[in-house]
Write a protein that binds this DNA or RNA. Structure first.
Length: 452
RNA sequence: UCCCCAGUAGCUCAGUCGGCAGAGCAGGUGGCUGUUAACCACCGUGUCCGUGGUUCGAGUCCGCGCUGGGGAGCCA
């Protein structure tokens, strides 16, 4: 490494001679014979204050430095005589790596999220988005750590699929194209789609490796225009053999708690930005997620609670109807005031692969509802009985031929198994208090808008 | 896809009753031995989203469109 990271320098226990720092200038302050540069290198939220005095010399160069300029600074890390920071870099030499000009859109002031979305290629240079994407990276690592510690195998499931009805919404079809626009024979004899979920493939691996998970992109062509939906998003999907619905909920609860705990332990400074400027309730909420037991109620009981609620809903509450957003919010935000699993939904409103309960009326499905974000996780025990599954497919109008390989897992040594999917961006919204999914993913894709 | 709200300088926004287009920040020049979104002085900046209409006169009122945001549905 030919540079020191600011993260490490600011944690130093003693002065250090001759360090090299490379980064981007956040702001420059100057008077007649002294310059101050705030330099950020992305290693942490905080900037390093660089001080240039007469001894540094090249003031004519330093004067060209505007917000956004990339620099290399050589100097000594010394205790700062002024308030505001413990350490500062007393520069011996300041070199400009890349100049900027007055058209640089980021300034040393607050910008709106809407504006920053139009410059998503530059927004990670801001405090907020720098923190966001460091947290995203840590959360991603925590996902793998959680499953690794529990003996799960990570499966890379296909992104190109042939199944057009996985019970999870509209799909993007994939067309082959030549760069020269010439006609050519198709490579595949079927239409290919971008996957909406790795679940069906993951089930095959759960029924061989036991405990597996996928963590990859999912694509949905729904015309959803909300702060909680994106056309391309990342999803974590564990799938576990010999696991029933209640053990599935145990796993989901442990998983969410573990991710939050990991962030609290490893991302304190970055999280504090969100609790200070984005959501003052963030820290209490994260703490309560870690410590409170999640509520678990059957769908039927949820309906009873909603019927007795002393507020009037816009949509009717009736056994057999799906819960509306307003109902879910009431349950998690007003009634229980913590994460809530709702399980055993009527079979008519859930996909074909969910296990039919003994009552014949409900399926072993579960949704995890959390305050603010709403539905974070959706999962189920899978229907492992061949005849029942075939019956479910028939009533859903799904081709048994196309799903022949899927049915094989029920034909040969079938086992009880369960799994769930967690929207990774939804989790990040919960973990940071950010209200729009476009602001927790590097280059958001939403209906009608792909800028990058 | 449906409902509601918004669009004014590079950015954040003000603009009263329909009557000459404004401020802060950013940028430029100068000043200041230690600043903390530094400060002080001076300087420039506009398709008022587009389009059609009402009016002597429209940033302001009305219709349509575009873009963005919020709510709903769908879902993770």
């Amino acid at each position: 490494m030919n540079r020191s990271k600011i993260l490490h320098l600011l944690k130093s226990e003693h002065p250090v001679k001759d360090v090299v720092v490379r980064g981007w200038v956040k702001t420059r302050r100057d008077s007649k014979s002294i310059f101050f540069l705030e330099v950020n290198d992305g290693s942490c939220l905080e900037n390093l204050q660089v001080v240039a005095t007469g001894e540094t010399g090249n003031f004519d160069i330093i004067q060209k430095i505007l917000t956004g300029t990339s620099v290399k600074v050589t100097g000594d890390l010394v205790p700062s005589p002024a308030k505001g920071q413990r350490w500062e870099l007393l520069a011996k030499k300041v070199e400009i790596l890349g100049l900027t000009d007055s058209s640089y859109p980021l300034q040393k002031k607050r910008h709106s999220d809407e504006f920053l979305r139009t410059i998503a290629h530059l927004r990670p240079r801001t405090n907020k988005y720098g923190a966001m994407f460091r947290i995203r990276s840590e959360a991603s690592f925590a996902v793998h750590l959680f499953f690794k510690e529990r003996g799960f195998y990570h499966i890379h499931t296909p992104i190109l699929t042939t199944l057009d009805c996985e019970g999870a919404g509209e799909l993007f079809a994939v067309l082959e194209a030549s760069r020269d626009n010439k006609q050519r024979a198709p490579l595949f004899d079927k239409t290919l789609y971008l996957t909406v979920s790795g679940q069906l493939a993951a089930e095959m691996f759960a029924c061989s490796l036991g405990n597996v998970y996928t963590f990859g992109p999912a694509f949905r062509a729904e015309n959803s225009n909300t702060p909680r939906h994106a056309s391309e998003f990342w999803m974590v999907e564990p799938e576990v053999a010999f696991c029933d619905l209640h053990q599935n909920m145990d796993l989901a609860e442990e998983f969410v708690k573990s991710l939050v705990l990991f962030l609290l332990e490893n991302c304190k400074p970055d999280l504090s930005l969100f609790s200070r400027f984005i959501d003052p309730e963030l820290m209490p909420r994260l703490e309560s997620i870690c410590h409170l037991e999640f509520e678990r109620i059957p769908y039927k009981k949820a309906v009873d609670i909603l019927k007795k609620a002393d507020i009037s809903f816009s949509y009717p509450v009736k056994y057999g109807l799906d819960l509306q957003t307003e109902h879910e919010r009431y349950l998690t935000e007003n009634f229980f005031k913590k994460p809530v699993f709702v399980y055993d939904y009527p079979r008519e409103i859930k996909p074909f692969y969910m296990r039919v309960n003994d009552d014949g009326q409900t399926v072993a499905a579960m949704d995890l509802l959390v305050p603010k974000t709403g539905e974070l996780i959706g999962g189920s025990q899978r229907e492992e009985r061949l005849e029942v599954l075939e019956g479910q497919m028939e009533s859903a109008g799904i081709s048994k031929e196309l799903y022949g390989w899927y049915l094989d897992s029920r034909r040969y040594g079938t086992v009880l198994h369960s799994g769930f999917g967690m929207g990774f961006e939804r989790f990040l919204m919960l973990a940071t208090g950010v209200k729009n999914i476009r602001d927790v993913i590097p280059f958001p894709r939403t209906p009608g808008t792909v800028l990058f």
